[in-house]
Amino acid sequence: MEKILAKKSFPQWVKKLDSWRVYIPRKDEEGRWNYFEADGGEVSLDVLQTTLPPKKILFPQREVFLEFAKTLAGNRETLEIKEVLPEVKPTVIIGARPCEARAAWMLDEVFGGEFKDVYYWKRRDQTTLVGFACTTPPSENCFCTSVEGSPHSEEGLDLLLTDLGDRYYVQSMTAKGEKLISAAKALFEEPKPEAKKQVKAAHAESEKKIRRQLKDARPIAQKLKGMFDSPLWDEESMSCLRCGICTYLCPSCHCFDIGDEVESPSPLKGQRVRTWDTCQFPDFTMHSSGHNPRPDKASRLRQRLLHKFQYFIQVYDKFMCVGCGRCITLCPVGIDIIKVLDKVRDHGA
């Protein structure tokens, strides 16, 4: 379904979505971008990148799996465990970047399959993703076009809005998307044929504005298979601080920890929680014996890159990188995934 929404009608539309929980990207007083609940406030349509991608809405940093408690009845102690599932209201993320939705399309693979992750799907099934085509790249390090995405990619999105000056061209890809249009039918018009042409032109134009490029990503994925033992990883990881920025802020990184948090040791009461974790922390893979299969920064940088550019492709035939550039922009020491992969491509050439 394709529609036109006048820009001046946009706030009205958002207001009509009152049976959804609406998240939008917004700037705080200090100029920091983040996804906030809209709560009837201003909807800003700037195109800057939030520090944290909306991954945190589908895959929160902390998720309670179950509650456990011991109770004393007489002198008999009983242990009770109670499964906790999230109560999720229908949710809309408005203003998601197409690459961020593409990341959800990747996470769907991880959390689906033989062992379905109910926590993820409880949220995912209830969430509608409304993307804005990036007419201006939201980051100087955007490289989505190099990893089979684009500033107007549709994977993972329910609706895609493209800025055509005073109106948006609205493309609905799913029934979820159509439901949002139905919530305020009167605001949407049928597009005229020239609008279709305009949107095509806008999309083509937006692709040209992407400043950074990773050439030959697929051949690199092939080449990586032979580079596990390359000295490159040591060289490129020398400046790595072993922090979690590149992975925690990555829209597609999803590694996690499961641990018990004890509220009271006696009588025992607490929760089992899932929290974000990262391959960049040394304790991530460390065995109880002290043995660590990834003992140094080189092996951890390699894991991050191979997971994204080799293993995920081997299993799902997709990159596990959407090219948002956050890991480049936010790395305190300037480790640049494009430069590292450039070296892989040019290695031995």
Binding site: V110, F111, G113, E114, F115, D117, F228, H254, C255, F256, D257, I258, D277, C279, F284, T285, M286, H287, S288, P293, Q303, L306, H307, Q310, Y311, F312, Q314, V315
Partner: peptide, 17 residues
């Protein structure tokens, strides 16, 4: 290898893919 989820999601026990 060290494991947390047991179902190929948490990301730590992999050897290669």
């Amino acid at each position: 290898n060290k494991m947390k989820c047991g179902i190929g999601k948490c990301g730590r026990c992999n050897i290669g893919f």
